[in-house]
């Protein structure tokens, strides 16, 4: 196997990053060509602006969205799960050690039945 050949053969296929890169670049070039063939006399600036239901955004709406609010829907959908997770992550050192010793005990019991040769 020559290490400079980028192809990886997986149990059910092949993967070649160079081919992927070429296809990616080719599609970029095609997109560029399509873009270049577009209408030259278009008005600039308006199309890319942010509109709220067709209206101009009021002043101050270009403020930054804080990290806390990104993915709100996701977290809202999984609220019961996250409530359980928050309960699990207490940040108290006794709980850290407790979890470790608990897993140790559980694994001792499990390996007692299935761990042997």
């Amino acid at each position: 196997m020559n290490p400079l050949v980028p192809t990886i053969t997986t149990p059910s296929g092949v993967w070649n990053p160079l081919v992927w890169l070429m296809v990616f670049l080719l599609s970029l070039i095609i997109a560029l060509i399509i873009y270049m063939r577009g209408e030259k006399t278009r008005k600039k600036g308006m199309q890319a602006g942010v509109f709220f239901s067709g209206d101009r955004p009021p002043e101050g709406m270009d403020a930054h969205i804080a990290a806390h609010n990104i993915g709100w829907g996701f977290m809202e959908a999984l609220r019961p799960y996250y409530r359980a997770m928050r309960k699990m992550h207490t940040g108290i050192i006794n709980d850290y050690v407790g979890w470790f010793l608990g897993i140790l005990a559980v694994m001792l019991i499990i390996f007692l039945f299935w761990g042997g040769a």
Partner: peptide
Amino acid sequence: MIAMTLILVTLAMKCGAVPM
């Protein structure tokens, strides 16, 4: 078996596997 469990669970904890 006991020694194996102690070593493996501890190292799993040290490499940061959930739930430790």
